[in-house]
Design a protein around this nucleic acid. Structure first.
Length: 484
RNA sequence: GGCCCUAUCGUCUAUCGGCUAGGACAUAGCCUUCUCAAGGCUAGAAGCGCGGUUCGACCCCGCGUAGGGUCACCA
């Protein structure tokens, strides 16, 4: 229907005020997908114009987050490009240059008021239940700027702006959205409202992918583009991600967590990409599990949602398991062994070959291994169990019966010539034959509980295999004694 | 409060005027299984309300309602 846009350039422009949360990453993801799909350019720009809110180390942390999920940028703080540098605090001269253009046109002036005076205006507006508009207090003669007051933009024409957002369609807002906002603060740094426009122009950004909170200030941006005589870029506005309660936009103030926490919890990068993309986007079919490449292929701005989507840990976990299943057995095992090692459990050779699949079945993210271990779920392999008599009995059977079966099985095990139970298959056949005659549950249940000490555990043959002859017999005999 | 936006199962969503409203997560039940998990099957579960346009509205329009965003020398 419409031809592929040419020479697309998108950017992600976080401010280094701490960590990135899922909302920020999704905005970055959409910008990245848009660029990658169109063979365009994706720029990372750091918007550090608020020195008071800046948090040490966040630039590195943000980059780490993006790198974790593979959102690579073509130009950025650590990737030199034609518009170096990519950190706003190092581009002050540029904002000044653009500010001077506006001053020359009579479209910018110094703010003569003190902060207290403005605060008074604001309070008054609030009391009158009216939106605060600075321009209503604009001095008759515009004060000249000496670089120490805030520099304000002068709205020259109060009109209704209409623009097309690639996600939301046609949008418009009247003059009440226009105001004399601050371009450059008294500390010499530009505000976001001005800096991002200057940078987007300078860097040739064609598509501004941003959160929905910027819709209301778009007329302000358009009035600046107009004053500068520059054609505005395309706006691509993403819907908000709501907290799990569905009530409010997810934000740091509401306890949104550090995106890197998901890495710590053991989610796969591909899951995060897949999940985040689908929170507010759906290509239309019934397929939900997408690889990164498939996502780039399927991404379409027309299919991006406008209403907020609620975050769901349940669905994230499900999706992560789906992506985990796409891993090879070798990759799975390596991950599990690695995670266990951190917990002080060393698995080697056959042990890991046997144990890893059991663990894999029971987790939906690598971090589940931690709770698995913490809750003693793997104790059946490492510690001799304590018994509660009743648990050794299968359904309606009785103690004597359980004991009889256990003793018989013990006999089979003792007779086994294979000291290491390397061929559990042979033993398995013998026990199975017996169990089939006696009722499988009646035999296998007490055996499994005797070996594991738990109501839930892997099957008895796996246990026999891993425990070895000595330990298996020791546990079985302990259980038999308990049944006396 | 002004302005802007949004509205399909509990949740994420499909439908681009023809719907017996589809899928996924979650929930419940059943099957399989030595238990749990996994897997398979099944079930319940939705078009915010009122008008209008139309042969026909979940889809288009208006009003109402609800929710979100925004109104900083924050981004």
């Amino acid at each position: 229907m419409k031809e592929k846009p040419q020479n697309i350039t998108t950017r992600f422009a976080p401010s280094p005020t701490g960590f990135l949360h899922v909302g920020g990453v999704r905005t970055a993801l959409y910008a990245w997908l848009l660029a990658r799909k169109n063979n365009g350019k994706f720029i990372l720009r750091i918007e550090d114009t608020d020195k008071a809110r800046e948090v040490e180390g966040s630039i590195e942390h943000i980059q780490k987050s993006l790198k974790w999920v593979g959102l690579n940028w073509d130009e950025g703080p650590d990737a030199p490009g034609p518009h170096d540098p990519y950190i706003q605090s190092q581009r002050l001269h540029l904002y000044k240059k653009f500010a001077e253009k506006l001053i020359a046109k009579g479209l910018a002036y110094a703010d003569p008021y003190t902060e207290e005076e403005i605060e008074k205006f604001r309070k008054q507006a609030e009391a009158d239940k009216k939106p605060f508009l600075y321009r209503e207090h604009r001095p008759e003669t515009l004060p000249e700027w000496d670089g120490h007051q805030p520099l304000r933009f002068k709205v020259s024409e109060l009109k209704t702006y209409t623009w097309t957002d690639l996600v939301w369609g046609e949008l418009s807002a009247g003059p009440e959205a226009l105001d004399d906002f601050i371009l450059i603060k008294s500390d010499g740094y530009p505000t976001y409202n001005f800096a991002h426009i200057v940078d987007d122009i300078d860097m040739g950004v064609t598509h501004v992918v941003r959160g929905q909170e910027f819709i209301s200030s778009t007329p302000k941006f358009l009035s600046v583009y107009e004053a500068l005589g520059v054609q505005p870029p395309h706006f691509v506005t993403t819907p908000p991600i709501m907290g799990a309660d569905g009530k409010r936009k997810l934000g740091k103030r509401d306890g949104a967590k550090d995106f890197m926490d998901y890495e710590k919890e053991g989610y796969l990068p591909d899951t995060m990409i897949n999940f985040l993309a689908f929170l507010g986007f759906n290509p239309g079919g019934e397929k939900e599990i997408f690889t990164r490449e498939e996502l780039i292929e399927a991404f379409d701005l027309n299919k991006v949602q406008r209403s907020g989507a609620q975050w769901s840990d349940d669905k994230l976990d499900w999706m992560n398991k789906e992506h985990m299943k796409m891993l090879s057995e070798k990759e799975r095992n390596e991950k599990i062994v690695e995670r266990l090692k951190i917990l002080g459990i060393d698995l080697e050779g056959v042990m890991s070959e046997k144990l890893c699949p059991i663990i894999f079945d029971r987790i939906s993210k690598w971090g589940d291994i931690d709770t698995f271990v913490a809750e003693g779920e793997l104790d059946y392999f490492f510690n001799a169990p304590e018994y509660e008599k009743e648990k050794l009995i299968w359904k309606d059977s009785n103690l004597a019966e359980a004991k009889k079966h256990l003793e018989y099985v013990t006999e089979i095990l003792e007779k086994s010539s294979d000291k290491n139970f390397d061929s559990v298959e042979k033993i398995k056949t013998l026990i199975f034959d017996y169990a089939t005659l006696q009722g499988r549950g009646n035999v296998l249940w007490p055996l499994r509980v005797a070996l594991s000490g738990k109501e839930k555990s892997p099957d008895p043959f796996t246990l026999i295999y891993i425990l070895g002859k000595m330990e298996t017999l020791a546990r079985a005999e302990k259980a038999i004694k308990k049944l006396d």
